[in-house]
Amino acid sequence: MKAKIHVYLKPGVLDPQGAAVAGALHNMGYDEVTAARQGKLIELDLTGDDADTARKRVDEMCSKLLSNPVIESYSIELE
């Protein structure tokens, strides 16, 4: 099984890297971009085939290490 974890900065947390990306896109003429936020995608290969157990344990991994609840939130996709 594979888990894909998206880690985002929470709304309201300043994202200077995202702001720089938006600025660069504007410089290239992509004026339709009103904001950019930069996050992370983490892929895990997992043993076992029980999706509920996997989701519970990956959720634990996210709150213990893969994200920082002070500044980030996350979502989990299993496939």
Partner: peptide, 8 residues
């Protein structure tokens, strides 16, 4: 938390 410097 400590984040990336605002000036990058």
């Amino acid at each position: 938390a400590l984040m990336r410097n605002a000036g990058l």
